[in-house]
């Protein structure tokens, strides 16, 4: 809380407040520096792109047009035929939203079962479910891929969405269960007395009250899966299915890394994440705090 009177800045409390804010400003500046460098670097020429300097000596805003295939590459004089940036962007946004939707729904249902219904072995099974968090993702890569092969989902959108949607199930279920535990059980009982089934209670009573948790999980799902690289790299073969992280590999080949174009593409790629984060930062902080407080 800032001091009310300017003269109190000289007081011990005011000085502490000032120091705290200066420290936070310094931290924010340090965190923002790489993004600023990335943004300014996206306007550099290829020769200058990896210089440590911040401000470009020669401004080249055409980098954005080159990435979008609206202008030829400055060095080769050719359009980037292989970089279907618009398509990669669409795939990233669409698959991320699909993954988030499936994950939120499935985790909500699981959280309801683990948090609101009493049944034998519930807690033991939940701990076992949580134990899957300890299995590294890379260990599951080949079995998951083999499952995709058997289901005929290699190089498909379904293969891109479904495994990723359920990959974060344990954490998402845990998060939502914690939210649901804060809802008084008397609401379930009242609805049950009125003849509501579990499904009705879940949809009409619990979900509306767990809205904050759902939003938090959805945002986490978006932030994590939008940047997913290895699974799309392994799964996909058709260029039109590539998401942004895989598609940008076209700009880093044995013919040289087109750093200025990678930076321009990354700036454009990061915009949705920045929008989501700024719009929902309270929900994100609440989600991070939740596990720490309730435990």
């Amino acid at each position: 809380m800032p001091p009310n009177d300017r003269t109190t800045l000289l007081s011990p409390r005011g000085a502490r407040w000032l120091c705290g804010y200066l420290l936070l400003c310094f931290g924010a500046f340090a965190m923002a520096l790489p993004f600023v460098w990335m943004l300014l670097g996206s306007f550099k020429t290829r020769a200058e792109a990896e210089d440590p300097s911040f401000v470009p000596r020669v401004w080249q805003p055409e980098n954005y047009a080159i990435v979008l295939r609206m202008a030829p590459d400055k060095v080769t004089g050719e359009l980037l035929e292989e970089v279907r940036f618009g398509r990669f962007y669409f795939n990233s946004v669409f698959t991320t939203l699909a993954i988030a939707l499936v994950q939120v729904l499935s985790c909500a249902m699981a959280a309801y079962a683990f948090g609101r219904i009493r049944w034998r072995g519930r807690d033991n099974l939940f701990f076992l479910y949580l134990a899957t968090l300890m299995v590294p993702g890379v260990v599951l890569m080949i079995p998951n891929f083999e499952t995709m092969v058997h289901l005929g989902m290699v190089d498909t959108y379904a293969g891109l969405v479904l495994p990723q949607a359920f990959a974060g199930a344990a954490m998402g279920t845990f998060l939502l269960r914690q939210f649901m535990l804060t809802i008084p059980p008397s609401l379930d009982e009242a609805a049950a007395i009125d003849g509501a089934s579990h499904w009705r209670i879940f949809w009409d009573v619990i979900l509306p009250l767990a809205r904050t948790g759902l939003v938090t999980l959805g945002i986490f799902a978006i932030l994590v899966n939008y940047q997913s690289f290895f699974w799309p790299l392994v799964l996909l073969k058709t260029r039109e299915l590539f998401t942004l992280p895989v598609g940008l590999l076209f700009l880093d080949t044995s013919y040289g890394k087109q750093t200025e174009l990678i930076l321009a593409a990354t700036v454009m790629s990061t915009l949705p994440l920045i929008v989501v984060f700024v719009a929902a930062q309270k929900a994100i902080v609440r989600g991070i705090q939740l596990g720490a407080v309730k435990g």
Binding site: A49, E50, D252, T253, S254, Y255, G256, K257, T259
Partner: peptide, 12 residues
Amino acid sequence: SAAGGWGHGEIR
């Protein structure tokens, strides 16, 4: 340098 991948920093 920005090394890594194909873009060996030394080339840059």
